[in-house]
Design a protein around this nucleic acid. Structure first.
Lengths: 180, 180
DNA sequence: GTCTATATCACGATAGAC
DNA sequence: GTCTATCGTGATATAGAC
């Protein structure tokens, strides 16, 4: 069983993603994490501290994901788009934490810290893609396509009828360097 | 001077975009719209009704924007990407209402209505791009790039150092049909 | 149609036992 | 380290005057 602290962050993520920031109250998070409210507040002294804990986890996972992009056997582009699309994220991976952080912007007093963390994630991924692809404009284009898929995942919108991530890869492939 | 009802929706949009869903209380909206709280609740009987009013406005503006995509002199792709990027939206246009609706998902009990409206906007834009470009995969790719730019606009992240929307257009242009 | 007052309720946070 | 009980605040929504 994971530590109480990790259980709390997991529950917070899940509530943010599935029911929005408005529903992610301290009571609800504590209940979902199977901890009392007092127990939660021992680990995170305030709601702002809870949000800060999520942002710290986001930064850690962003750095790890940038490494994954560089190491991916399937290629940087395929990895990035696949994990951004609905259903492509894995528990413990960057995608879930990212989606949760997107929703935490509302409901916490300090939107500044959130935007700063998101900007860092953005920069990490862009740097990794640029390293692999060589071309800054193409790297940015690929990243934006991934962000568009993130937005669909965020809203729960299914992919358009008859289209898949592989279709996008087929369209992008001719532009990519041979090794990817 | 616009009608009180429109002033209320304008103020609601602005508060959602600039200070998040948590700050868009009935008190704050009424104050920003220069209406009393009672006056606001005459036009919108509840906070859910206020959100529904915003979603109706979103649907109207989405249909109008799809027409704009088809009519744009600069080409469908250029119009869509330019208006999606930070600073590209105009008052009364789709972009501001879309960004506001993205944040209303939290704070309202019924996230279902929001997601349905967003899916409709998505389908409108994709249909317009497909009509102009002919190629479904390319249309989707362009839409996803636009959505990625939306996400940047939502988070207030500036464009990456040294890169502009024109760079994206230059990279996409060779793939587009000649008339666009 | 628009206002003031007020009832009701949920959330964040604290205190203190165990 | 984790719990229960409780307080203060601020939000939605209602009632009713004008």
């Amino acid at each position: 069983m994971p530590s109480a602290r990790d259980r709390v962050l997991d529950a917070y993520e899940t509530l943010l993603i599935e029911h929005g920031a408005g529903s992610a109250t301290l009571d609800a998070v504590a209940a979902a994490a199977q901890v009392s409210k007092g127990g939660l507040l021992y680990h995170f002294a305030s709601k702002e501290a809870l949000a800060a804990g999520l942002l710290q986890r986001l930064r850690e996972r962003s750095a790890a994901d940038a490494d994954e992009i560089r190491r991916a056997r399937e290629g940087a582009v395929a990895y990035h788009l696949r994990t951004s699309a609905p259903g492509g994220g894995v528990p413990g991976g960057l995608t879930r934490t990212y989606l949760a952080a997107l929703r935490v912007a509302d409901g916490t007093p300090d939107g500044h810290a959130v935007r700063e963390a998101m900007a860092a994630v953005d920069a990490d991924a862009l740097a990794a893609l640029r390293d692999e692809l060589g071309d800054p404009v193409l790297a940015w284009l690929v990243q934006l396509v991934g962000d568009g898929l993130y937005l669909r995942t965020l809203l729960g919108t299914p992919l358009p009828e008859g289209l898949t991530v592989d279709d996008l890869l087929g369209r992008l492939r001719p532009q990519l360097p041979p090794s990817t």
